[in-house]
Amino acid sequence: MLHDAGHFLALVNPAIALLLSLCFLLVWNHERARHYLLQVGACYLLYAIAIGLQIIWPPRNGGGNATVTGAFYLGSGVLLLRGMLARIGARSDRCTVVALPLILFGMLAWFDLVQPNLVARIYILNVGIALILLLGIAPLARLRTGRTVDRVLFWVFLVFALQFLPRTVLTLAPVGAHDAAVLTRTAYWLWLQATLALMLLTLALTLLAATAQDVIDRLRHERDTDPLTQLHTRRSLEALAAHHIPPRPGEKLSVLLCDLDFFKFINDNYGHSAGDAVLTQVGRIIAAGIRRRDIAARLGGEEFVVLLPDTPHDAALQLAERLRQTLEQTSIDVLPGMHTVTASFGVATLRPGEDLEALLMRADNVLYVAKNNGRNCVEWEREAGLPALA
Rank of each mutant, 00 (worst) to 15 (best):
R292W: 14
R292T: 12
R292S: 14
R292Q: 08
R293N: 14
R293S: 13
R293I: 13
D294V: 07
D294Y: 15
I295D: 10
I295A: 05
I295S: 14
A296K: 12
A296F: 06
A297Y: 02
A297L: 11
A297I: 08
R298A: 03
R298P: 11
R298S: 05
R298M: 07
L299A: 00
L299S: 01
G300Q: 04
G301R: 06
G301P: 04
G301W: 00
E302P: 07
E302N: 04
E302G: 05
E303M: 03
E303R: 01
E303I: 06
F304Y: 09
V305W: 03
V305I: 04
V306L: 04
V306M: 03
V306Q: 10
V306I: 14
L307M: 07
L307V: 15
L308G: 01
L308P: 02
L308V: 08
P309W: 00
P309S: 09
P309I: 00
D310K: 07
D310T: 06
D310A: 06
D310Q: 05
T311A: 00
T311M: 03
T311L: 00
P312N: 03
P312S: 02
P312Y: 00
H313F: 08
H313W: 03
H313K: 06
H313I: 15
H313L: 12
H313Y: 05
D314T: 11
D314I: 09
D314F: 08
A315W: 01
A315K: 01
A316Q: 02
A316S: 03
L317C: 07
Q318G: 08
L319Y: 11
A320C: 08
A320T: 02
R322V: 06
R322N: 10
L323D: 02
R324E: 02
Q325Y: 13
Q325V: 08
Q325H: 11
T326I: 07
T326E: 07
L327M: 10
L327S: 07
L327T: 06
E328I: 14
E328T: 13
E328L: 11
E328S: 11
E328Y: 09
E328P: 06
E328G: 09
Q329D: 13
Q329N: 11
Q329Y: 12
Q329I: 07
T330Q: 09
T330M: 09
T330I: 12
T330Y: 11
S331R: 13
S331E: 09
S331G: 10
S331A: 10
I332D: 07
I332E: 11
I332G: 05
D333F: 13
D333E: 12
V334K: 15
V334G: 14
L335A: 10
L335K: 06
L335H: 10
L335V: 08
P336M: 14
P336Y: 14
G337W: 12
G337V: 12
G337H: 11
M338P: 04
M338W: 15
M338N: 13
M338S: 06
H339A: 11
T340R: 09
T340W: 12
V341R: 12
V341Y: 09
T342R: 05
T342P: 03
T342S: 06
A343W: 01
S344Q: 05
F345M: 11
F345C: 04
G346W: 10
G346I: 08
G346K: 03
V347M: 00
V347L: 01
V347P: 00
V347C: 02
V347H: 00
V347N: 00
V347E: 00
A348R: 02
A348P: 06
A348I: 03
A348N: 05
A348F: 00
T349S: 03
T349E: 04
T349F: 04
T349I: 01
L350Q: 01
